[in-house]
Amino acid sequence: MSKRIDVKDLNVYYGNFLAVEGVNINIEAKSVTAFIGPSGCGKSTFLRTLNRMHEVIPGAYAKGEVLLDGADIYGAGVDPVTVRSNIGMVFQRPNPFPTMSIRDNVLAGVKLNNKRISKGEADALVEKSLQGANLWNEVKDRLDKPGSGLSGGQQQRLCIARAIAVEPAVLLMDEPCSALDPISTLAVEDLINELKDSYTVVIVTHNMQQAARVSDKTAFFNIAGTGKPGKLIEFAETSTIFNNPSQKATEDYVSGRFG
């Protein structure tokens, strides 16, 4: 079910601009990995290259290898659509489909792909995914109401439910809690802890406590200056990064003595 990701010498470009340079990282299956680093250092950019979502942006391309359980997702003949159904993504801002009900939002990955599914199976999938996203109890009485009628935190958990309903091997999350209150944040963090049992989770966050709370390993990205490419500075166990980092920049950043 869950798969590991190995990245070798990855460079990411926006047109001529080299945004991320020379990343090598090995992400274990069934683990939570946090990406931290200052704004603009390329965390989102790098995260998107892990499921080829950067290709949606005109002019963006990546060079290097990203191996999903040993298979290069940039290999010849690989369909990005296949990659994305294996590697799901949750975005910074909750983005439920406004034309669909809560139920249809959860089923979006199935329905939009026109897969046949019986009513019973669909009901079971909706319940399982919403349970998985800690949202079932709050919405079970109004599954047919529009998803945009939920609170921001509920919408974000709906998006997580939608992402896990297609049962990806890996779940990428780009600052999933930055628009949420502490209670919703806690709900999402609990959820990440549970997801770890069956998925590989990669999370970008600006919140160090969050990184410390949820992740097994942490990657620190940094940028030398504006116009320079972002680089992976250090990647280690979370406790090492926060208590005993080997790089000066990492220590400065995690202790708040930055810049």
């Binding site: 659509v81 296949t82 159904s85 990955g109 792909n113 939608r162």
Partner: peptide
């Protein structure tokens, strides 16, 4: 992007 990320 939400749809693409679901493999649509």
């Amino acid at each position: 992007e939400a749809a693409y990320a679901l493999g649509v």
